[in-house]
Amino acid sequence: MRLTINGRQVEADVDVRTSLLDLLRDHLGLPGTKKGCNQGACGACTVLADGERINSCLALAVQYDGREVTTIEGVGAPGALHPLQRAFVEHDGFQCGYCTPGQICSAIGMAAELERGLPSYVTGDLDAETIELTHDELRERMSGNLCRCGAYNGIVDAIRETFGQIAEDAGKREAA
C-alpha cells in the first residue's frame, strides 16, 4: 500500500484491519493525530484526505491506498507554524492540547468546504452562492470536534481570525 502523507510517499504493509489512525500513530511514527474514542464520536483523529476532513479512526487504511493525507505534522511545526496554529496559541484555543490537532485539521477542512460554498444545517439559504462564516455557522461546522477542556471560545476566535475572510473572498471571486 502506498500513500502520500504530508507530501511524502510512504509504503506500508499492514493488516487490513489497521485504521488510518493506527497506521499513522503506531506504524508511521506520526502520533500528532490523536485517538479519543476510536468510534467517530470525538473528532480528535481528524486528518485531511485529498483535502477533505475525515475521522481517521473509522477509515481502514487500505481504503486510502493511493490517496494524499495531511496530518497535523504536515500543517506546520514549531518555528514554522501555520497561521491557524499561531492563532490557536494566541487565543488559547486549547488547554490539554489533545483534541487540538483534530480541531486544527478540521478547521482547515472546514475552510475549504466554505470556499466551495457547501452549506450546513444552519445555513438559511441553501442555494446561496456564498455563505458567511457567522458564529452559528462556525460552531455547527466544528461540532464534530469535541473539546472536554472547554476551549471552544478560543477555538472559535482563532478560526474566525484566520478564516473569517474566506466567504468574503469567495464572494469577490464569484463576482469577478
Partner: peptide, 26 residues
C-alpha cells in the same frame, strides 16, 4: 500564551501512549 502551545498545536507534545519503545507490545 502557553509556553507549550507551539508543541501542542503542532501535534508534537508527547502523550503517554506516544513514547516509542523497542519491542513494544499492545
Amino acid at each position: 500564551s502557553r509556553i507549550d502551545g507551539p508543541l501542542k498545536v503542532a501535534g508534537q507534545a508527547r502523550f503517554a501512549a506516544e513514547f516509542p519503545m523497542e519491542g513494544l507490545t499492545y
